[in-house]
Design a protein around this nucleic acid. Structure first.
Length: 385
DNA sequence: GTTACCGGGTTCTGCCATGTAG
DNA sequence: CTACATGGCAGAACCCGGTAAC
């Protein structure tokens, strides 16, 4: 197959970003003269440590300090912001307050991403409008901002944001999934359009090289199965796909199926991690008397098993086997490994007390939500076994 | 009515490195 | 030279329930 070659061709070839000329004004607004109204050279209470130049805007520091911003942290993170003559902190504060953010939240946002105070009123309005085109309320936006200020403020390119929204929509990603993307991985929308496009093209090329017919649908499916894909590097995703294909010796058909289902979940694992976990799984199964073919089978049945760290996985397998379960049952139904060691142990204990026979009844009883498990237990008790 | 299959929910930011515009 | 914009990285589960299949 020519996959390797195609993947190679997709390496970030100079990854030139065709930056569009955006006409949005990104300069400080005129309403912040109050920076200059206060001239305080006396009180040095609001520390001015470690920055030899002493050219920071003192009144800015005070204003932020009063608001509750962790000024030290902010300065450490983006010192340049504090040497600017003009900033729009009051505009930002008013803006966010009007959107329903508390002062605590605003202070925390500025502490973590000080550059936010350099964004103009017009810029903020427009960016908010674009985010709101995906979210249902201001409150939702505030929640994400509080969680990840950087995702919202890192880029000043609203045009790029708009293009991203159009691009992802044009792939057939539905509003509901756009909502999921922006909620769970907001950084996607601050990526350059070119970067997102490169990832989508990588996925589409994988699909085509595997003989798939609808590569756009393939990309859409993978992204919707794993919303974090687009904030990963193509290098990582590509090496993970290459690894899965070769390590599991997948046929084209198997690969297409796997990647569009549970396989998508593990594509954003750190590559080293994937390899380590894979190796550990192989070794562990070998020590339990299983062949490599069986390891393959297990992964094909439930790829996210590679997400589980070696230590945890070994513990889970050990406790199931000590509980009298045949490894072959686990290979058939690896999803039981989804549950925590604690839960598994508890359930094994409960079932043993009733003399439950896994050989006769299988192990799917372990793979139930706690509600369903409770019901099941009650019925078993009524029946006397 | 049970079991099997499947997909979804939560959450994944905060830092550093690099290239570039001014 | 500096600040900004952007790419990339580490870290690594557990659980729920709708509904199709029997």
């Amino acid at each position: 197959m020519a996959l390797r070659q195609i993947l190679f061709l997709l390496r970030p070839h100079g990854s030139r970003i065709s930056r569009s000329v955006t006409v949005f004004k990104c300069f400080s607004t005129t309403k912040t003269d109050y920076n200059e109204t206060e001239t305080d050279f006396s009180g040095d209470k609001t520390d001015s440590s470690s920055h030899g130049s002493g050219s920071e805007n003192k009144s800015l520091l005070e204003n932020l300090s009063v608001l509750g911003v962790d000024v030290q942290m902010a300065q450490r993170r983006q010192p340049g912001v504090f040497r600017k003559i003009q900033t729009n902190e009051q505009g930002l504060i008013d803006f966010l307050e009007q959107k329903g953010a508390s002062l605590d939240i605003i202070a925390s946002i500025i502490s973590r991403f000080p550059r936010a105070i350099t964004r103009s009123e017009e810029h903020l309005e427009e960016r908010w409008r674009l985010w709101r085109s995906i979210f249902n309320s201001d409150a939702e936006v505030v929640k994400i901002l509080n969680r990840s200020p950087e995702s919202f403020f890192r880029s000043s390119d609203n045009g790029n944001l708009e293009k991203n929204i159009h691009y992802l929509s044009s792939l057939g990603i539905k509003p509901k999934d756009l909502h999921r993307l922006l909620t769970m991985a907001p950084r996607i929308f601050s990526n350059s359009l070119a970067l997102n496009r490169t990832m989508v093209e990588l996925l589409e090329n994988v699909c085509m090289s595997l003989g798939g017919t609808d590569s756009e649908k393939f990309a859409r499916t993978v992204i919707s199965r794993n919303v974090y894909i687009l904030i990963r590097s193509t290098k990582r995703v590509r090496s993970n796909i290459e690894f899965l294909l070769s390590a599991l010796e997948l046929s084209d058909e198997e690969a297409l199926k796997l990647l569009q289902s549970h396989g998508a979940k593990i594509l954003d694992l750190s590559h080293e991690n994937m390899k380590t976990n894979f190796r550990n799984l192989q070794l562990k199964l070998k020590s339990l008397g299983c062949s490599q073919v069986q390891a393959r089978e297990l992964i094909l049945n439930y790829a996210p098993i590679l997400f589980v760290s070696s230590d945890t996985l070994n513990q889970k397998l050990d406790c199931l086997i000590e509980g009298g379960i045949d490894i072959r049952r686990i290979i058939e139904k690896p999803k039981v490994l989804d549950y925590s060691v604690t839960t598994l142990k508890q359930r094994l204990q409960d079932l043993h007390q009733l003399g439950y026979n896994f050989k006769v009844n299988g192990i799917s009883v372990l793979d139930l939500s706690s509600k369903r498990f409770k019901c099941k237990m009650e019925k078993l008790r009524e029946l006397g076994v």
